[in-house]
């Protein structure tokens, strides 16, 4: 992928690393940061590969493994859990026929869980890529999945 425009957006300083990684991942059709990009970013910021790779490995929003075009992150925090997120997760697993951390064969959706999304008044909540959704029911999930599938085509 073309990452030069992203690199040029920021000063050449290590403190922009996470910003750069976010932008790359958001722009990547598989929502991840590929190894050759790690090498490029490391060279650009004059740090060693492990300093980039290790940061990806620490932050749960960043991924060094290919994922789907849309990453579904269901809140599994104590509140959403209380308000029924585990049912939602089970529903998504069955509907998408994937386990947590897996991607649908068409490469469209990856199912993940996340800690508190700060949408507790509208629990249970989830994010699809950068969009937040709350007060979810299985019916709403159906509609959302359909919309995302459609918008992709």
């Amino acid at each position: 992928m073309e990452i030069d425009p992203i690199l040029q957006k920021y000063p050449k300083s290590r403190d922009y690393l996470i910003e750069i990684l976010h932008d790359i991942q958001n722009a990547h059709p598989q929502s991840y940061i590929p190894p050759e990009v790690v090498t490029r970013v490391a060279k650009h910021l004059n740090v060693k590969q492990a300093q980039v790779y290790g940061v990806i490995g620490y932050y749960s929003m960043l991924s060094a493994k290919p994922r789907g075009r849309y990453v579904i992150r269901v809140c599994a925090s104590p509140i959403c859990n209380l308000m029924g997120s585990s049912n939602l997760i089970d529903y998504l697993k069955e509907k998408l026929k994937v386990d947590i951390g897996q991607t649908t064969p068409d490469g469209l959706f990856t199912l993940e869980t996340t800690e508190c999304l700060g949408n507790c008044a509208a629990a249970p909540a989830m994010m699809i890529n950068q969009e937040m959704y709350g007060s979810l029911t299985t019916g709403m999930v159906d509609i959302l999945l359909e919309q995302y599938s459609k918008s992709h085509k």
Binding site: V38, K48, A50, Y53, Y58
Partner: peptide, 17 residues
């Protein structure tokens, strides 16, 4: 050239990638 990968109990040392 070294860093940890993952975090918590699952963390381990990586060189490079």
């Amino acid at each position: 050239v070294l860093s940890f990968y993952e975090r918590g109990l699952a963390s381990y040392i990586v060189a490079g990638m």
